[in-house]
């Protein structure tokens, strides 16, 4: 019992840098979502049920440009397919846990929790214990949801001149994610730029949501061809 409590707290502590990263982004999400005309309930519900940062921003973006429901759901699927690989590697680490717990923990897998959970487990066995993982994943999830709520409540008090310009914040986030990846590995820049070109081209013929999906699938195929295995992350 004591050991479990210790592991739980150690998981929460490991989540701390992640909370610092999540909170401002979740708050921005709340503000931008309400400014896009999505009510507070649906905004918070999205963070509660979907819990995938980039695709939530993308959904708001697509919704404001008038994309259909099917387009948004399909684009979310494509964007989050990458979690399959992360989950595959985590489930290997967690194969001592019962299926029912693994199914619950699966919901908490994000790019960031994956990085922490997969790195720490090699250090000590306690880090793949149930209590540790609950501490880590619940703290991360909690900060994402509560940040969204805070942002949603703040949206009403931010003056319209500022909030009208906040939709660019989405793109700021996308750029802030892409540029460091390109600095680490220039080939990812080629994939992104080709994807931009494809998306611009497809935009002439299809709705913007489908253009994004098509450009992503074709761009990633190019990526699979030019990125070597060890480079691909």
């Amino acid at each position: 019992m004591e050991a479990q409590k210790k592991n739980f707290i150690s998981g929460m502590i490991k989540a701390f840098p992640l909370v610092i990263g999540y909170l401002p982004i979740a708050i921005s999400f709340g503000v931008i979502s309400l400014n896009a005309g999505i009510p507070l309930l649906q905004t918070v519900l999205m963070s509660l049920l979907v819990y995938a940062g980039a695709s939530q921003f993308m959904a708001i973006n697509m919704f404001t440009v008038g994309a259909g429901a099917l387009e948004i759901v399909m684009a979310t699927f494509v964007l989050n397919l990458r979690h399959f690989i992360m989950s595959l590697s985590l489930m290997n680490l967690w194969d001592h846990l019962p299926k029912r717990w693994k199914s619950i923990f699966a919901f908490g897998i994000t790019d960031e929790t994956f990085a922490i959970a997969s790195l720490k487990t090699e250090e000590d066995a306690a880090a793949s214990s149930k209590a540790y993982l609950i501490g880590l994943l619940v703290t991360a999830y909690g900060s994402w949801v509560s940040g969204t709520l805070i942002g949603g409540l703040l949206a009403g008090v931010i003056p319209p001149t500022i909030s009208e310009s906040m939709s660019i914040g989405l793109y700021g986030m996308f750029i802030g994610l892409l540029v460091p990846a390109v600095q680490r590995l220039w080939k990812t820049g080629i994939v992104a730029v080709v994807s931009m070109g494809l998306c611009t081209l497809f935009n002439q013929f299809f709705a913007s949501g489908w253009s994004i999906i098509l450009a992503t699938v074709i761009g990633a195929t190019l990526g699979a061809a030019i990125l070597k295995e060890e480079e691909a992350r």
Partner: peptide, 16 residues
């Protein structure tokens, strides 16, 4: 593996 891992970069490009 390579295809799945390339998706975020391609998606970010198309989104931006």
């Amino acid at each position: 593996n390579r295809w799945l891992k390339s998706i975020p970069y391609a998606a970010l490009g198309a989104l931006i």
